[in-house]
């Protein structure tokens, strides 16, 4: 597949912005400014950048607990996201959700989910609605290798294939379900091996190669839009940090960590851009700076934003006060 310079720059910019967001959140968490559980996707940026370049604003997407980058790539408002992580009134969810429950229905983002495996059926329901409403929209469902072992996956994979729902199942295989390595939790070599059981295509691809992620997703999205039903994509990658911030990740083999750090998806694309003479190092530095400036602004916005009023505790439980 041939990529235009603009496309490649877009990939790079998205990855750089995601990296800047996650790096800053890590610092802010360590500084005690962000409460709760924070799961970062450092090292996994190619998946968000490649996948979301394949969909439109009205397409839907179910996320899981490690989904900041995905939300940025889908076009989420970074200021509001950062404010949400702080628990501020101006946050995406008015400070009531936090990192694990980021959602933005206007962007088709059905929400991150703190319950592993609950997102499969919700995303399938969104895909059902896409088709029921006779739109051309499709739904993506992103999930980790660990949660691929939850029972609800089976129900939703089966129904989606049976009904040919317009959905793409995307596994971000980052090597671990918390401390448990894939070899310790998965009976098959690949999560995608399971696709055959549901009569859908399944493929495993290098998740640190943004171009491969894009091409693979593009094909599955087209298939879903054509009405040919779901696909299962597995992108193999590596989580740089611990499971959540504060976890030193002592269960990782340092040699593996070192190997994977060398496969950093950002310089990988950057080097190609330079080699192809599409970009200079200054261009790349500039994109990095643009990402960082966005995060500076977001942190400022979050810090200056007000806390929610105590009365907010009681609103949004129902559509009315019962």
């Amino acid at each position: 597949m041939e990529f235009s310079k603009e496309q490649l720059f877009d990939f790079y910019q998205t990855m750089a912005t995601c990296r800047a967001f996650e790096s800053r959140v890590s610092e802010l968490f360590a500084a005690g400014k962000i409460p709760g559980f924070v799961h970062l996707s450092l090292g996994q940026e190619a998946i968000a950048a490649g996948v979301f370049a394949c969909v439109e604003k009205d397409d839907k997407c179910g996320l899981h607990h490690r989904s900041h980058g995905e939300m940025i790539a889908k076009g989420g408002d970074i200021n509001k996201m950062m404010a949400e992580l702080f628990g501020k009134a101006t946050g995406t969810c008015k400070g009531k959700g936090g990192s694990m429950h980021l959602a933005d229905m206007d962007m088709g983002l059905l929400g991150a989910n703190g319950i592993l495996g609950a997102g499969f059926a919700i995303a399938a329901g969104a895909a059902f609605a896409c088709r029921y409403n006779e739109t051309n929209d499709i739904t993506l469902c992103l999930f980790g290798d660990g949660q691929s072992n939850r029972g609800p996956l089976h129900e939703s994979f089966n129904v989606a294939a049976l009904w040919k729902l317009p959905i793409v199942w995307i596994c971000e295989n980052n090597g671990f379900g918390l401390s448990n390595p894939v070899k310790g939790h998965l009976a098959t070599d690949n999560v995608s091996d399971r696709a055959a059981a549901y009569g859908m295509p399944g493929v495993t691809v290098d998740g640190n190669d943004v171009l491969a992620v894009y091409e693979t997703t593009q094909e599955a999205v087209k298939r879903a839009r054509r009405g040919d039903g779901p696909s299962l994509l597995e992108f193999k990658t590596w989580r740089w940090h611990g499971h959540f911030e504060g976890d030193p990740g002592l269960y990782k083999d340092p040699k593996d960590q070192e190997e994977w750090l060398k496969k950093d998806p950002i310089p990988r694309l950057g080097n190609m851009l330079i080699k192809k003479k599409y970009a200079t190092q200054e261009d790349l530095d500039q994109m990095k700076a643009i990402g960082e400036a966005k995060i500076d602004a977001a942190v400022k916005f979050a810090e200056e934003s007000p806390w929610p009023d105590a009365s907010e505790l009681y609103t949004d439980v129902y559509d009315r006060q019962l």
Binding site: K60, G62, M105, L110, A118, F120, A121, I122, A123, A124, G125, A126, A127, F128, A129, C130, Y132, N133, P152, S156, V159
Partner: peptide, 9 residues
């Protein structure tokens, strides 16, 4: 679960 997703949409 699907009803949660379809009703949200």
């Amino acid at each position: 679960g699907h009803a949660v997703g379809s009703s949200a949409c």
